[in-house]
Design a protein around this nucleic acid. Sequence first.
DNA 1: TCTGGGGTCCTAGGACCC
DNA 2: TCTGGGGTCCTAGGACCC
Length: 416
Amino acid sequence: MNNRIIFHIDVNSAYLSWEAAYRLQHGASLDLRSIPSVVGGDISKRHGIILAKSIPAKKYGIKTGEPLLTALQKCPSLEVIPPNYSLYLQCSMGMVDILKDYSPKIEQYSIDECFMDYTHMNKLFGSPAEAANHLRARIKKELGFTVNIGISSNKLLAKMASDFKKPDRVHTLFTHEIQEKMWPLTVSDLFMVGRATTTKLHHLGIHTIGELANTSLDLLHAHFKSHGTLIYHYANGKDHSQVKPTLPKAKGIGNSTTISFDVEDGSTAKLILLSLTETVAMRLREAKMMTRLISVSIKSSEFVSYSHQKVLAEPTDITKDIYDTICELFDEAWKHEKIRHLGVRVSSLSSNTNLQLSLFHYKRQKKYTALDRSIDKIRKKYGKKSIIRASFIHSGLKPLNGGVPEENYPMMSSIL
DNA sequence: TCTGGGGTCCTAGGACCC
DNA sequence: TCTGGGGTCCTAGGACCC
């Protein structure tokens, strides 16, 4: 139990590296990773933030999540590349395919991060360090991008280790190395210590992970409740969570969008909410789930966010039912300020396999369920834009909004 | 500082029930 | 009503992650 070997594999500057590798494989002569470059959204659509940066861009003080505009002030010659999520999905799947050669126990933590349990696997690829280096080199050679790999006896320490010097490195962080390698780091480097917690810890005089590790659990629990207990154990390198090879069942499905202009009237807002609901409901049915809890979220032009939710009497997967509830919630919640951002989310999900329709609503539900099924089929066969609601015609708004990347991208060729 | 979008988990307070 | 305590559900907001 205490002798596990866990790897954390982290793609260096994932979105940017993937774009760079793709371009090189398609004849480009310039490697984006060698110049100040970023993947970022469209400023004119108010999506202008940095999603990934090259190491040269980092040297200008450009940070992930910061506005594109300030990044351009720091480096006017910055190369800005739009995101391409279906490419990222292909690259991510390519990497996981390689990882599967090294161990069957792989957890895909995000599109660019995986945990791998290498316990008892030494006979296959040698010692953990040998295997990690083999893996690192193979991904680089076959897929054209680099990764950092952290090795330890649990997931937390492996993840912390992969964050050490980048790119293209393997690091270990075993228990006996915690004091030397992890404790000198600033407390905000610890997983699960974000901005709010960092500020509060500083007020308590705690600045390094080592200081956090040596603070009393009682004090931390008094200030941070269960989160205090969590970060105390993390600072001491303690984590017993398992590598989970199967992805967990989704707890909720949501889509949201920042609108390119401020919305001032309810009818425009509701049209945007409809486009979001369409996508959310399609994804819900695709997952063969029903929802009982519907919520709408609003962000004003002044960046004030709020939400409103409702539990339904019975679960549904019908677009119209979800949308009607969304409109009701919006009318109750909206404070009539200018709107920048709208979101639709469904949760309290249950399987739809044994759907029991109440007798009273049976006919109505059957009708709308059949309608949704038909629309889903047409969209699947002829594309998502093949059938749209009349209300969007001439509206200038997208009839479907949000969603997950589609798997329609040509597979990356090997670099050879 | 003109500052995205997808998630998960936790907490606090109120309603309601026994 | 000088009036308890525990349990569950619901709601809103906030923290964190990539």
